[in-house]
């Protein structure tokens, strides 16, 4: 059974890049352009892991993080952002991992593998 990853990012190209790269890694990928639609669809999809952008219009990734963790505390969430300064922000501490966005997805893929293994 393939693991399902929920990708939330407002940048269309980045979202598509994640989809393609993660499918290549053998995951099922569902992606959303904003946090609200992702939260709405969460129970329906029951993803094994969520990859969440921080800076997004409508609802920020930090708010979405709190809501998703209340819904499903055991689903690992990786926060992703262009810059590392959110690392010091308290509200990111409940996330399971934190990565700085980069065209090189090696670190992200390793983090995903690690968290999914932990959760088994």
């Amino acid at each position: 059974m393939k693991k399902k990853i929920m990708v939330v990012d407002d940048e269309e190209s980045i979202r598509f890049l994640y989809e393609e790269e993660l499918k290549d890694e053998g995951y099922d990928v569902v992606s959303y352009p904003d946090a609200l639609s992702a939260i709405d669809d969460f129970d329906n999809q029951k993803p094994d892991l969520v990859l969440l952008d921080i800076a997004m219009p409508k609802m920020s990734g930090l708010d979405a993080l709190r809501i998703l963790k209340e819904k499903s505390p055991d689903t690992p969430i990786i926060m992703s952002t262009a810059y590392s300064h959110y690392k010091q922000d308290f509200s990111t501490w409940i996330a399971d991992a934190y990565i700085v966005k980069s065209p090189d997805l090696t670190e992200l893929k390793e983090k995903i593998k690690e968290l999914l293994k932990l959760n088994n």
Partner: peptide
Amino acid sequence: NALIGAIGF
């Protein structure tokens, strides 16, 4: 952000 997508693809 634009480059992440561009370089990724």
